[in-house]
Every structure is written in C-alpha cells, then in structure tokens.
Amino acid sequence: MKEHGKLSERQFAGIIANTMVGVGVLILPKTATKFAGTAGWIALLLGGVIALFFLFLILKLGTRFPENTLMEYAPRIIGKIPGTLVSLIFCTYWFLLSSLIFRVFAEMMVDAILLNTPIEVIIISMLILVAYLSRHDVEVFGRVNELFFIFLIIPAVFGLAVSLKQVTGIKLLPLLGNGLPSILINTRELFFSFVGFEIIFLFIPSITTLGKVYNYGFKGWLSPAAIYLAVVIIGIGVFGTRELQNLMWPTLELVKVINFPGLILERVEAIFIAFWVIAVFTTVTNLFYSSVVGATQVLKLSDHKTLVYPLLPLFYFFSTYPQNIYEVLNYMNVMGKFGGLVIITVTPLLYIISLIRNIKGGQKA
C-alpha cells in the first residue's frame, strides 16, 4: 500500500491544493462576510494561517515517521485501540465529506446548466470516474493531481485578474468590517474552508525527497489560499456584503458579471464550470481515495482496490440522502467543523505524546 518514492514534490503540492479547492469556493464570499462584513478577507487570511500551522504540524509529525502513515504510527503513539479509532474517524470523515461534496456539485450543475437532468445521473456518471482513478496506485494518482492542478490554476489566475476592473473600492470599506470580535468568529468558520490538507497523513512516506516536504507543503497551501483571498476580496468589491448574503452561488454569479475581453460566448459561466468540474473531481477523488487507502491499512488488506467497488453503493447513499441543497450545506458545515475539530485536537496530541514518549520511526532511505 505504501509506495515509497512514487510522488514528486510538485505532485505532493498538487494533492494538497486540489483537495483544498472544491465546492466551498462557490459560497466562500458569502461565508467570509457572514459575520465580519467587509473584513471577511481578514478573517479568511487568519483562518488560512491557522490551517498552515496545522499543515506544518502534520508534516512535522509525518517526518518523525517517514516510513509510516497515520494509520501505522497512531497505534504506536497512543495505543492500538485509541490509534485504530483515530484512524477510522479520519477515514469516515473523508468518506462522508467526499459524498457531500459530490451532492453539492450535482445540485449546482442542475441549477446552472443541466436543468432537466436528474441529480442521480450526474452523481453516478462522476462516481464511475472517481472509482476508476481510485483503483490506481499512488504514482498515477499523483500525476493526475499534478496535471489537473495546471488546468485549475491558469484559468483561475486569468479570471481573477480580469475581474479586478469590476471592483468598487468603496464596497471594501470599512477595512475592519463589523469589528474584531466578528472577525474572530468568522476566522473559526473560515478555517474549516481549508480542511482537506490533512490527507497528507497518508502521502508523506511516498514523497521522493523528504527534505523538501515543508517547502512544497507551503506551496500546496499557498495557491488555494491566494485564490480564496482573491475571490473574497473581488466578491465584496463587486457585490457588497449585503448582496452576497442573498446569493446562493456568489462565485458563480461573479463569473456571470465579468466581461472577458475577446470572448464571444454568451454564457461565460459554462467555461468556469468546465474547469470547476476538474477541481471538484480531484477534491472528491482525493478524499475518497484517502478514505479507501486508510481503511485498507487499518484492516491490513493487501490491496486498496478490494474496497473501492464495495464502498460505491454506500457513497451513493450518503450523496443522495439529504432532501435538498440546504440540508446538504448544513451537513457539510457540520462535517467541516467536525473535521477541523479532529485536526486541531488529534494532531497536537499525537505529536506531543510522541515527543514525551520519544517515539519515532526509522530514517527514510
């Protein structure tokens, strides 16, 4: 299951970035301004810095066990039963989160372009692709993330650069929005928008050069953080905080009002959605793949392919269980908070106990 030396540093960064950028970006300006108002971008920046701290802490913990994943060193640090329980919590969280992200994706597709298409059809068609990629090894998985990240970052940078001319500076004032307490409240909420990076618990042993793990871990965080920050600032500058709270998909609405020079297509959002499908596909696949690989290691199976197809019906069930988009977003909010809570409690606990008990793995070859 662990294929050492199979991930390049750029692939490692791509996995982090692609997992963080998903459906959350569609409602991010609305989330960021919910409490902080025009200071939503400050709250987002603070939430991103907190996420970066825990990303580095995970890397620090992983480099103490360069040959092992979380599922292998957690039982050594805190005992077999608690360690196995922690591993299963992460696997379950990744699995449920990926199924909910899939449902949000399907809902948005129906609202935006596939008006008469049943949600079940969209979920099943994409699920086939997710299952296909998830059955490959980590080397193929890394190559796909590296390639798809290019298709994500280039149009994102171009679109955000063009949209700057639509920004009205007065809508960004006052800089401190509704005050420091509201910023801190939103910071907690926005930290959950960065979750997903914790899947690197599984991929640190596979990176080719362990010494560069911090450098490329930072680069993997930086790209989505910059995109998030730009989306929030531009969203506030174009719509204002009050209007953002009334929009279902503010980022999609932002794309609709942007005038792209030289573009003759009437529905620019269709191009945005085409690239966004790639972003969601990689996010869902990364989370699903991680849950499958993690469960395989907990169950001590020889091949993760054994679990891929048996888990698909369960994945479909959780994707279709919510009755409407509001239930889905509510479940996603709960899952995001749960995942964030697990990250900020389990990671420091494992690291501190490993230091106190002086437990570490062997040196990576």
Rank of each mutant, 00 (worst) to 15 (best):
I343G: 11
V232R: 02
I200K: 06
L329C: 01
I199M: 06
P205L: 04
N215T: 15
H304L: 10
N259S: 10
I233S: 00
I278L: 12
L329R: 11
V104N: 02
V49R: 05
R143S: 10
L45R: 12
S134F: 03
W41A: 03
I77R: 07
K30L: 13
P313S: 01
L26N: 07
F95Q: 01
L55G: 04
Q245I: 09
G79M: 11
G62R: 03
E243H: 12
V144M: 08
R64L: 12
K212S: 14
V255G: 00
V213F: 09
M71Y: 07
A32S: 06
K165W: 00
L115K: 07
T117A: 07
K360D: 05
V293M: 10
I42G: 00
F239T: 09
L61G: 10
L265T: 15
Q363N: 15
L247I: 11
F54K: 05
P155S: 00
L190S: 05
T282A: 02
E67Q: 14
I356P: 08
N116Y: 12
P118G: 01
G5E: 08
V346L: 14
G362R: 15
M108T: 11
L355A: 11
V213S: 14
T347D: 08
T320D: 11
W276P: 09
N324H: 01
T345H: 13
F260P: 00
L127D: 08
L61W: 05
M109C: 08
I58P: 01
E189K: 13
V232I: 10
Y214T: 15
F315S: 10
Y326D: 14
D303G: 02
L59H: 12
K6P: 11
G240F: 03
P155A: 01
D111N: 12
P205H: 00
T345M: 13
T320I: 15
L247N: 08
G336V: 03
G47I: 10
P118Y: 02
L314K: 05
P118D: 02
I278T: 10
S134R: 07
V138Y: 02
S206N: 12
P310I: 09
R143Y: 13
L175N: 02
L175C: 04
R188A: 13
I227E: 01
L222E: 05
I359W: 11
G83Q: 08
E189D: 14
I124L: 14
E139A: 14
A39R: 07
D303N: 12
F239G: 07
V308E: 05
I271P: 04
I183D: 03
F239V: 11
G235V: 06
F65Y: 11
